[in-house]
Design a protein around this nucleic acid. Structure first.
Lengths: 238, 238
DNA sequence: CGCCGTATTGAGCGCTCTCAACGAGGGTGG
DNA sequence: CCACCCTCGTTGAGAGCGCTCAATACGGCG
């Protein structure tokens, strides 16, 4: 892929990504090690729930292996997928810091390994470390920006545009660390992809088909490969 | 209004409000005074811009008087209003903390008085105050939850539902401090209300008309009064 | 081979958008 | 004071997008 195009895409979608690199946590190494030391390893099978909307949060999670989807249930039963975390990322800390109940449900997309750190211990480490506070403030501020951008997208753009954008985002999420962006295999079933894009499965399938027929993507079963980044970038309206 | 209903509504929309009380900042009093002491008073006329999307942030703002809308421009020229800040609130700090450019534009909805605090000074105070860090972490975590909820709303719900919800939210925003919630006068022109709800002006007008005809709201020029909280609450799907 | 969950396709309806016209009100200049 | 203009709000009509329902295909697994 053209390096200029790559940069344009990168800088466009960076406003929608929590981290510049997938799996990056901005937590200082020292505190990360300290937290993980007192955490315990949990293995979670594909499709298994990690925590559920409405629960009081029990602790924070470092995802070591696998992918986790964060979703929210609508009053009419529809599911909205909000993020997909990949190995290396920390999650579950925000509801603890904000004294909220879990606003969302976390479910393993693949077989996962997590390190679970008790709420109380996390708070202790946080209180004793200005570096950790600062790092969290910084990452949450950036996350705030990405969420605001996303609200705009959902409020204003059609499904074609949203799918194009989310495919580019997923391309980062499913990037194999160290490899080039264009090597990603987006593996997500239609239901989840629809729930992520915020549409019905049927509509998603139709839009995806159109992308396929135009040569923007290639599909092999559940796996989607992006073939024409520029087209998707243009459609997404970034 | 029925006190039980009021509590149900309150707890429902609290997941969409930055603060439990409009105009509340969770910043410790000591740091707030310190920041304001070194800030300078700025007067901004109605419709005047305070800062613009894409700019590097210059500092933080305490809103002392008036209301400020935070909006974002879409690639096709459409405007999305994301928040409306009222007197007492702090804004502009997140892009500083996250090292981002301003992701949004801030515009005075009414004649405003603000205290502007230089970026460097804000960072200094923050570095020297764990209390301030903690307060910001807490409030930003809660804000994260509210944004996630909002994404769900925009992704999944129709305009009728969104307008009902946003009217309930605006009812809090336009609440006169100390008075009961049901006394609010929502004063916002149709364009802004449409941009806030994420729809076209025409559609907004039609939906509002329907609410009026059903007796859910009363309209006097630009001012909207909620007449039937329960109906809006039910429609919003909270 | 049959079953079940997932993916795809089609048809029809309803919601939302756009375009266009008209009305109301406020401000300005003659 | 009136005529005009400009902005804002309202209404109507028509097109198109996206949703729902229903039927059909596909693929893995017992």
């Amino acid at each position: 892929m053209n390096i200029l195009l790559k940069n344009r895409i990168q800088s466009g979608i960076s406003n929608f990504l929590f981290n510049a690199e997938p799996g990056e946590t901005k937590i200082p190494e020292k505190e990360k090690l300290e937290l993980e030391k007192y955490g315990r390893l949990i293995k979670v099978a594909r499709k298994q729930m990690i925590y559920q909307e409405g629960e009081p949060p029990k602790g924070v999670y470092f995802l070591k292996k696998g992918k986790v989807k964060i979703s929210q249930l609508n009053y009419d039963g529809a599911v909205q997928i909000l993020f997909i975390y990949c190995a290396g990322e920390l999650f579950g800390h925000r509801s603890i810091l904000g004294n909220d109940r879990q606003p969302v449900t976390a479910t393993a997309l693949e077989d996962c390994e997590l390190i679970f750190v008790e709420k109380e211990y996390f708070i202790n480490v946080l209180k004793s470390s200005p570096d950790l506070s600062e790092a969290l403030l910084q990452s949450m501020s950036h996350e705030f920006t990405t969420l605001v951008n996303r609200i705009n997208v959902f409020a204003q753009r059609g499904i074609k545009e949203r799918l194009a954008l989310f495919l580019l985002i997923l391309n980062e999420t499913f990037k194999i660390p160290g490899q080039l962006a264009e090597e990603s295999e987006i593996t997500l079933n239609r239901n989840d992809l629809a729930a992520y894009t915020g549409t019905s499965v049927e509509n998603l399938v139709r839009t995806l088909k159109m992308f396929r027929e135009n040569g923007y993507v290639r599909v092999n079963g559940k796996t989607i490969y992006i073939e024409n980044f520029e087209a998707l970038f243009t459609i997404s309206g970034l």
